[in-house]
Structure formats: structure tokens, C-alpha cells
Amino acid sequence: MKHHALEQLEIVAKVNHDYPRLPMSRRERLERWAELLERYPHPALSTLRETEYQPAVERAALRTDHSPISVAFADPVLRAAGMENDSYGEARRFFDLTDGQLHRLVCYCHYGAAVSATTAAHHVRALFTRENRSLLARLRDFFVG
């Protein structure tokens, strides 16, 4: 399947921006992503290089085929819920993540060129299981990472 940004599609096709989106909570979106990663048939996913060193505009546009983000974007349910492409910036917006959270999930510096789908799923699950933790624990995660 070939993926295109919405802007690219608008050049060659009429895009209905009023198409209804499926309402999903942040937790539901993250749970869906974790499930997709757990079922992903290939053991290794590509990482993104040096996300922490890129200027914000360039970091937002980062993408690569066969990444944890592209697994999410390939899912019609998440696309229907509003995921518009498989870029770093879109994953950050759609899943309501901080740069630190997304960096920990997809950056080369943590895993090398590839991360296992199981490891990525584990880190996605940690994002929504931490929501039920105490305020002190969440503050520690925010400042420490």
C-alpha cells in the first residue's frame, strides 16, 4: 500500500473533508495502536534517526516505511478516526504524545536501525497505563522521561 499526505491526494482527487470521523478517545487510539503492533507480522520495524536533534518543522515531517507510526497509519480504523499520514508530527498530534514520549518509542538512539514490534507495543501500552498512576509518578515521568 502506498501512502500519501492529504495535500498530495488533493492534487489528483477530490477529498471530502466532511467525511465523518470515528470518535475514539486517546486511550482507545493508543490501545488500537498497541494491538496492531502486537499482531504485526514482521519482527522488526524501522526507527527514525535523531528525532531529538531535528528542528521542530523537520522533526514533524520525519517518516519512514515500516515504522511503528506507519503500522498505525495502515489501519483503516485509525485513519477513519482522523490519522492523516505516517509522519512523526501527525503521530504526535493524533496520539496526543509529547516529543519525549514519541522519541522514546521511535528514535534510532534507543534501538538502532530497528525496533521489534513487541517492544514498540510494550512502550505504547505503557503510555496509557501510566494515565492511572499517581500525580507524583506522572510528574516524575514527565521530568525524567
Rank of each mutant, 00 (worst) to 15 (best):
F94H: 09
H66K: 03
E90K: 10
Y19M: 09
R29D: 09
R125K: 09
L78I: 05
A126L: 11
E38V: 05
H103I: 01
A5C: 10
T47W: 03
Y88R: 11
E52W: 03
V57A: 09
L102R: 09
Y88G: 03
T129W: 01
T51G: 09
V115G: 10
Y53W: 05
H103L: 06
A121I: 05
T118W: 07
V71D: 10
A117V: 10
A5E: 10
R39V: 06
G100Q: 12
C107Q: 13
P68N: 03
R138N: 03
A113T: 08
Y19W: 12
R39F: 00
R125E: 06
H3N: 15
R29W: 13
E50H: 10
L30Y: 08
L62S: 03
L105A: 05
D75N: 12
S25L: 03
L78W: 07
G82P: 13
W33D: 02
A13P: 06
E131G: 06
E84P: 06
T64Y: 08
L45M: 02
R140H: 06
V15K: 03
D99W: 04
L37K: 04
H42M: 03
L9S: 12
L136R: 12
P43H: 01
R27E: 12
G89Y: 12
H4E: 15
T119K: 14
L78N: 00
A60N: 14
G82Y: 04
R27A: 11
A5M: 13
R63N: 14
V77P: 03
E90A: 05
M1D: 14
T64M: 12
W33V: 02
A56C: 01
V12K: 09
E50N: 11
H66L: 07
W33N: 01
I11H: 13
D86M: 13
H4Y: 15
S67W: 08
H123E: 12
L6G: 08
V106Q: 04
A121M: 13
Y111F: 15
A13C: 14
R79S: 09
L37M: 02
R32T: 06
M24L: 15
T119V: 11
R32Q: 10
L139P: 00
A91W: 00
I11M: 12
F142A: 10
A60H: 11
R130M: 06
F128N: 15
Y111T: 13
L97Y: 10
H42S: 03
V15F: 11
R39M: 06
R79H: 05
R27T: 15
D99L: 08
E90G: 01
E7A: 12
T129A: 00
V77R: 08
A56D: 06
A80F: 01
P41D: 02
A117E: 07
E35T: 15
E7Q: 10
N132D: 15
T47K: 01
A91I: 01
G100T: 01
V77Q: 11
C107T: 09
P43F: 00
L30M: 10
D96W: 02
Y19P: 01
Q8M: 06
V106H: 01
A56P: 08
K2I: 09
